[in-house]
Simulated scan of single mutants.
Amino acid sequence: MTTKPAPMMPWPEEDFSVYGSVEEKPVGKIQGFVAKAMERNWSMIPHVTHNDEVDVTDFEIRRKAWNAAHPDKKRTLLPALMKCTVDMLKQFPQYNCSLSADGKKLFAKSYYNIGFAVDVPAGLLVPVIRDVDKKSLDDISAEIVALSEKAKTKGLSMQEMSGGCITLSSLGHIGGTSFTPIINAPEVAIVGITRTQQRFVPDDNGNPVLRQMLPLSLSYDHRVINGADAARFLRAMADWLVSYEFS
């Protein structure tokens, strides 16, 4: 015999003016859409978040050296992470899938479109860069700049926010040490990036050395991805960044 779950308690309604001065404002159109999508994604997807960190000390040395030698083609972290993510999707194809609405079918993708979250005054938008595997870092960087600017000014079409395989959400320009990004359905995972931290870690001889550590947070759909897969995914990302050479 199965029992029905108890109905959810109603949302509390109060007259806030009893406590002091208040101003009633409507929820913006974009934020209202984002709120509904986030409520659906959080309530329907069994989220788990795995946290790890990457020693990017040598990566940053190489990046800064490249930028000094090529001031007209400077490199930033996000385009490199997009290239890294493509390699991760190839190595771990279960991340490049989507579940059907009823959860009975799995769609395995053979393309590599990467979304990235953009913080705009009216809310949050996720433009998608298509065929990242076929594009250079310069091409990816230019698209990130163009789509970010359009998102913050003119806005994006649904076409420009559709077809993603996985999303990157970076808060590194603001701060934080980790967070739980909500999966952008129908994708099955999202990577969160926060600000690089300077920390002393022991070297091979046990002596403390100052290193730059990049925190990464991977939220995944536990119906498709298991915990060990998530740990392997972020470890593989770390290995990729440690050995990556800019070109």
Rank of each mutant, 00 (worst) to 15 (best):
M1K: 13
M1G: 11
T3I: 10
A6P: 01
A6W: 00
P7D: 14
P7S: 12
M8H: 07
M8Q: 06
M8S: 13
M9V: 10
M9A: 13
E14Y: 08
E14W: 09
F16Y: 13
F16T: 07
K25L: 15
P26H: 13
P26F: 06
V27R: 10
G28C: 08
G28S: 15
G28E: 13
K29H: 11
I30N: 00
G32T: 09
G32E: 06
G32D: 13
V34D: 01
A37I: 00
M38L: 13
P46K: 06
P46M: 06
H47Y: 09
V48Q: 08
V48H: 15
H50A: 12
D52G: 09
E53G: 04
D55G: 05
V56P: 01
T57N: 11
D58N: 10
E60Q: 04
E60F: 04
I61R: 14
R62N: 05
R63Q: 02
K64Y: 02
K64T: 11
A69G: 11
T76A: 14
L77I: 14
L78W: 05
P79T: 09
M82E: 08
T85H: 05
V86Q: 05
D87P: 00
N96A: 06
C97L: 12
S98H: 05
L99A: 03
L99C: 01
S100V: 06
A101N: 07
D102H: 02
A108F: 02
K109T: 07
K109R: 15
Y111D: 05
Y112I: 12
Y112G: 06
G115V: 13
V118F: 05
V118L: 12
V118S: 12
P121R: 12
P121L: 12
A122G: 00
L124C: 06
L124V: 10
R130H: 15
R130S: 15
K135R: 15
S136T: 15
S136W: 07
L137W: 10
D138P: 02
S141Y: 06
V145K: 10
S148W: 02
T153L: 01
T153W: 00
K154Y: 00
L156G: 01
L156E: 01
C165N: 15
C165H: 11
C165L: 01
I166K: 03
T167D: 04
T167V: 10
G172I: 07
H173F: 07
G176K: 12
T177A: 14
F179C: 04
I183C: 10
I183R: 12
E187W: 05
E187S: 04
E187N: 08
E187G: 10
V191L: 15
G192M: 14
I193C: 14
T194K: 07
T196P: 00
D203K: 08
G206L: 12
N207R: 12
P208R: 07
L210T: 13
L210P: 03
M213E: 03
L214S: 12
L214G: 07
S217V: 06
L218A: 07
S219V: 09
Y220C: 11
Y220P: 09
D221R: 04
D221K: 10
H222T: 13
H222Q: 14
G227Y: 11
A228P: 03
A231H: 04
L234C: 14
L234Y: 05
A236V: 03
D239C: 03
L241C: 14
S243I: 08
F246A: 04
